[in-house]
């Protein structure tokens, strides 16, 4: 075997291993999703049967029809989109600034302020419920999607993510910019931001996901059914005091996850530039 043939063989084996691993993982990760997709076409009588059945019989669209029969369903989708849009826009704008400052600029109290911000994530929500009520009511923001969005447009976890990303960029490029007389703010807009597209994509995906699925916040601060977001709306429509209609909720959560998946696909080009990691050159 010539070294070249050997190299080719190793590459082949590597590709096979890669595929086996990828497929196994895909199966594990997809299985509950497939299960709920199948169940969304079943009656609850069948979906809850024991042992589990995999083929809808009778095949029913009732669960989806139940969703679309809800008069408020389109409203909830619109509310959720508005909420998610505000949160994503706010986070992309403000947390990239803050993350850059915490990672790349030197100013007094930098690390202390950052730790203090991070510590906000460490208090369980149950003890902050009362003060949050006070603030939201005093500001007149109860039952208002904009008010709810204001709570989350500078999420500390996004600041943290941006900071860590800016820290992982190489120093040289910023040094060079500085020697060229490029000020810190200019460097943010002309150097840091263009380089930060992958992280901005990740922040956008995370915040969209978080706000699209958010439950506790909208549950507490939105009060009129016509102002609800989708998750709260689904719970409103299908959860009773003593029991829950699961199949429409499953169908609803499948419908709800579609926009997140689309956003992920759209932002994919920022997340992936396709780096050659395997032996082959593309």
């Amino acid at each position: 075997m010539t070294p070249k043939e050997k190299e080719r063989l190793i590459r082949r084996i590597w590709i096979v291993i890669t595929y086996v691993v990828l497929l196994t993982f895909a199966l594990v990760y997809l299985m509950p999703f497939i299960r709920s997709l199948v169940a969304s076409f079943m009656t609850w009588a069948q979906a809850s049967r024991y042992p589990p059945e995999w083929i809808p019989n009778p095949f029913t669209l009732e669960n989806y029809q139940k969703l679309f029969r809800l008069e408020l369903f389109p409203r909830w989708i619109r509310n959720t989109a508005l909420y998610a849009g505000l949160i994503v826009a706010g986070n992309v704008m403000f947390t990239s600034m803050a993350g850059y400052a915490f990672a790349r600029l030197k100013f007094p109290g930098r690390d202390v302020i950052f730790s203090a911000l991070l510590s906000l994530l460490m208090i369980p929500m149950f003890v902050t419920l009362v003060p949050n009520y006070i603030i939201i009511y005093k500001l007149g923001l109860i039952d208002n999607i904009f008010g709810l969005a204001l709570l989350g447009i500078t999420n500390v976890s996004s600041i943290f993510l941006m900071r860590q990303y800016f820290m992982s960029l190489s120093n040289e490029i910023f040094e060079a910019a500085r020697l060229d007389g490029c000020g810190p703010i200019k460097a943010f807009f002309y150097i840091a931001l263009p380089l930060a597209k992958p992280a901005l994509g990740a922040v956008a995906v995370y915040q969209f996901l978080g706000s699209w699925n958010a439950f506790i916040g909208p549950l507490i601060f939105l009060r009129s059914p016509e102002n609800f977001t989708l998750p709260v709306g689904l719970s409103f429509a299908f959860q009773r005091a003593m029991w829950t209609e699961y199949t429409p909720i499953i169908a609803g959560s499948l419908v709800a996850s579609a926009p997140t998946i689309i956003l992920f696909l759209v932002l994919n080009k920022y997340l992936i530039r396709g780096i050659v990691v395997t032996g082959g050159k593309g």
Binding site: K106, F107, I113, L117, I159
Partner: peptide, 13 residues
């Protein structure tokens, strides 16, 4: 740099 840093974090803070 100090001014820039403080102003960039101001909104979030």
């Amino acid at each position: 740099e100090i001014v820039a840093g403080l102003s960039l974090i101001s909104i979030a803070v």
